[in-house]
Nucleic acid binder design. Structure first.
Lengths: 259, 259
DNA sequence: TAGATTGTTAATCGATTAACAATC
DNA sequence: TAGATTGTTAATCGATTAACAATC
């Protein structure tokens, strides 16, 4: 079906919200919450877009997927929009979350205030290290991995956070999924494979830094006439040598990584 | 200068690599490093794509922006490609990093192994809390914010990590930028404003969870015929009431957030 | 040579944005 | 009514992907 509803365009209403839009809704919500706390009654797309750091046309387009929640000539009612976005994101209900891997990072996550603030609640902490079992982190008792399935079952969580080392992440993931978890936030630097129907989002510090390094390098090389590498690389491997189609390109194309 | 090189298609070489491609290079690099550790000599786009969790056509297209580093009928030389991607990302050099805000998260980041592993080095830890000054975290002495400018100057860092509370993030950011930092990784849940030429990437746990919640909610409502909210919302604000153009749509459009 | 696999083309899809009619 | 601002259109841009000629 193409449309299906006659009022609000239904296709774009109860489904079909673009991922890019979904990813921005939390940003809008945060800006709106700040306005709400300052008791600002209404806000224009221009103002809100500035606060969220996006283009105002983009914001209006994003909101158009949710419905017509603004008033022409006036703007958006802050409280009303906070509720609508919260509802769209599923934040009007409580989301119990389990954190697996209570190392430095896991503990930091458990203590993170923003966790609890918006409908998320740390329901359980799990770690494979027996010496951690029973210890309190953020006021919650750490439980041993052995009981993972039962813990998930009893606490009714559907969102799992993986903060284990990379080596155990897939195994933990498999167990979480088998136990009924359908959304995973992965902090371990691994690609997780999951069955259809399970959502995985990843947060990867190392990747973010590498992306920054890429741009940083570009900045540094922008003015400098030449951006030659300092350490001269070793000899290229056979396969690499064999494909040098164009002449005069040897100077700046080192071959193999020093280490 | 715009291009400046004459061999490899210069436009796509020293600039013009799409952001989406740049963001995937670290992923490829990680998969390649794993292969390298297993002493695998060559890999096909199909195999590597599977390991990185992407489409093989996409991978080949990505690599085509870097140059012709493969061999038709054979595949890619693992070591050679590791080096080329490392070089492209700027990882053949060392990137000193300063972390500001040594709370739970900052400490976790300082201790994070993946940090050091790929060319990044924690050069300094900074916190505003005087009681932390001089304390060792991950073997590095925490220094007080007062000396921020001098610390940056002396350590020559160009990448800053902000792990402070949201309230101080912009101020810290401003000081980092003024001190010469041009790349920032922001863990504080705020939109940072920076001058042109400064790159900001953000990692936001709360946003990731909200995106998961959105999809989780959709899954839950998929089978159920109606996905009505449990708590009936209070009366809508005036502005909201005024815009209900279409009839028969009241049922599924509650009005105002309870809290 | 025959088989394999890259690098590239071109079609498709999704996201962004300016512009403006609708309308408060 | 006049001014302001939304919601939507349409143009543009960038990213993805299948397909295949080039070529090892």
């Amino acid at each position: 079906m193409a449309t299906g509803r006659n009022h609000r365009p239904a296709t774009t209403r109860s489904r079909g919200i673009p991922e890019a839009t979904v990813a921005r809704l939390p940003l809008y919500l945060r800006a709106l919450t700040a306005l709400s706390e300052r008791s600002v009654p209404t806000v224009s797309s221009e103002e809100l877009a500035a606060a969220a750091g996006v283009n105002s046309a983009k914001l209006r387009k994003d909101f158009s997927y949710l419905g017509s929640y603004g008033t022409r000539g006036v703007g958006y009612d802050v409280e009303y929009l906070v509720y609508q976005i919260s509802r769209e994101l599923g934040l009007t209900q409580d989301w119990p979350v389990v954190i697996v891997g209570i190392g430095n990072l896991g503990a930091a996550l458990a203590n993170y205030g923003g966790f609890a603030s918006r409908g998320f609640r740390v329901a359980a902490l799990i770690d494979a290290d027996p010496s951690l079992t029973g210890r309190l982190v953020a006021g919650i008792e750490v439980q041993h991995t052995d009981g993972l399935e039962q813990i998930i079952d009893e606490s009714g969580v559907s969102i799992g956070v993986i903060a284990t080392p990379a080596g155990s992440a897939q195994q933990v993931c498999d167990r979480l999924v088998a136990a009924g978890i359908t959304s995973i936030l992965n902090f371990a630097p691994t690609v997780l494979s999951v069955p259809d129907g399970v959502d995985v989002r990843k947060v990867d510090l190392s990747i973010e830094l590498q992306i920054l390094a890429f741009h940083e390098q570009r900045k540094a090389g922008e003015e400098a006439p030449e951006e030659e590498e300092t350490a001269p690389p070793a000899a290229p491997p056979a396969a690499a040598v064999s494909k040098r189609p164009e002449p005069g390109s040897d100077g700046d194309r080192p071959a193999v990584m020093p280490a």
